[in-house]
Simulated scan of single mutants.
Amino acid sequence: AAPLPQSARLLDELGLARATPASLMARWADAADDPEALGGRARAVLGAGPHGPVTADLVADGPHLLIEGPAGSGRTELLRAVVASLAAAERPDRLGMVLIDGRDGVGTGNGRNEGLRVCVEIPHVTTHLIANDPVRMREFAQSLSAELKRRAELLGRTDFAQWHAGRVAPGRVIAQRTPPGAGDIEAPPSSTLRLRPGAAARQRAEAVPPLPRLVVVVDDLDALVSPALGAPGRPAAGSVTRALEAVAREGERLGVHLVAAAGTDGRTADSEPARRATLRIRLAAPQQGPDEPAPGRGELAHLDAPAVGFQAGRVTGRIPRTATQRPTVVPLDWHRMGDPPTRRPVRELGNGPTDLALLASAVERAARQVAAAQVPSLL
């Protein structure tokens, strides 16, 4: 185990220090062959841990994730990291994301006031809602409820994974084999493909539109559960909250996941999203000082497992794509020979695109190359 770093870069923890379409397509191909993630992978790398990157798997350990922390603890930046790492793990036609900024006043300025709007360039993001327009908020609540109803009717009595397993089984393709000694010995082996007897079932399955996973990401959930007096979105906050509660109750069977961030004042403790969250992150209050860690220091806890500390990976920093640190030689005592290498701080530049913009560009190019259709918007 290595000590947690003072800060972490998300692309380094993802193994995408130089994000390229080829590296992303390789990850997507690996996800398509994963039998544990039928219908789409929803695995988010949170940051650097004592034994390497810390990951939250919404399929295996979820279905829902709740992030709690005081103001300034890095909740919004961690949500951005979740969105970015989910996009790196799965192609956009197998995973869609809906972003909700529950606090009014975001998305209209620069820097910290941008909220989740900085993630809209990622092709996986289909909808972005800011809780400052009651009409748009009610439309979103109705659309999200209609999507849950559509999925329930499509799945019937099965769940999301079983439904996709039934679509995959009839479509298996095998190579035609020639019996030994049959035909001309000099003739090349046949490469003709034949379908299993379930070809008709496969054609019927292909007639049904694909059903991707859907992740609803909410920042400032407490501002929706108990909006402030005079908030522009207060008249419609209840309808959005009820739609999110339906996601928390029914989302596991329907392939819909909820990732929400809230404060530590207890306003969301009795809400349905908080009760249904099997994955929980607790962020520490920020500390001032040159030797203190950057915002984003926290612990990930889930059922039947001890909490794991981590330093959240930053994704909106402006860090050069090329390595600027040259190899260095340092004295090493013999009794420290087996220790992991110490992490060196990376100098962040004040110009150039952010890591999130670089990743979004690579994801967009990769999605074009694999001809991935975007998930329809809810608005």
Rank of each mutant, 00 (worst) to 15 (best):
M97Q: 14
R80K: 14
T76E: 05
T126G: 10
T126D: 00
V82F: 13
V120P: 01
G111H: 14
A84R: 06
N113W: 06
R112K: 09
D104Y: 10
P92I: 07
R117A: 13
A87W: 00
A84V: 03
P123L: 11
A84F: 07
C119P: 06
L95I: 10
L79D: 00
I100M: 13
R103E: 08
V135R: 12
R103K: 15
S85E: 00
C119A: 15
L79M: 04
R112N: 06
D93V: 11
T76W: 05
V83W: 02
I130H: 11
E121H: 12
N110S: 12
V120L: 13
E121C: 05
D104S: 15
A89R: 04
V106W: 04
M97T: 13
D104T: 15
D104L: 04
R94P: 05
V98G: 03
N113L: 12
A81Q: 03
A87K: 02
V120Y: 02
I122R: 01
S85H: 09
D101G: 12
G105C: 04
P92H: 04
L95W: 09
D133K: 14
I100S: 15
P123G: 07
D93Q: 10
P123H: 06
R112A: 14
T76P: 07
T127I: 07
L79H: 00
N110G: 06
V135E: 12
P92D: 11
V118F: 05
T127H: 05
G102H: 03
R91I: 13
G109T: 09
V98M: 10
E90I: 02
G74F: 03
T108L: 11
I122E: 01
G105D: 00
D133P: 11
A89S: 04
L129N: 07
T108S: 10
P92E: 05
A131S: 15
T108Y: 09
S85L: 06
E77Q: 14
G74H: 03
G96D: 09
R75H: 05
T108W: 05
V82I: 14
H124N: 07
R136G: 14
V106G: 00
E114Q: 15
G74Y: 02
G102W: 03
A89W: 03
G109K: 08
R103G: 01
T108F: 10
I100N: 10
G102F: 01
R136A: 14
V135G: 06
T127E: 01
N132P: 03
G107Y: 09
E90D: 01
L129T: 03
G107F: 09
L95P: 04
E90Q: 15
A88D: 01
R103Q: 15
I122A: 05
G96T: 15
A87S: 14
P123R: 08
T76Q: 08
H128K: 04
T108I: 06
A88E: 03
R80T: 00
T76V: 10
D93A: 08
V98P: 07
C119K: 09
L99E: 11
M97Y: 11
R75C: 07
R75G: 03
L78Q: 02
E114Y: 01
P123M: 08
V135I: 11
G102N: 02
R103V: 08
E114K: 10
R103D: 05
T127Q: 00
T108D: 05
A88L: 04
A87P: 06
L116I: 11
G111T: 13
L99S: 12
A81E: 03
G74R: 08
D104Q: 13
E121I: 00
N132Y: 04
I100H: 14
A84D: 00
G102I: 04
G74C: 07
D133T: 15
G96A: 12
R75W: 02
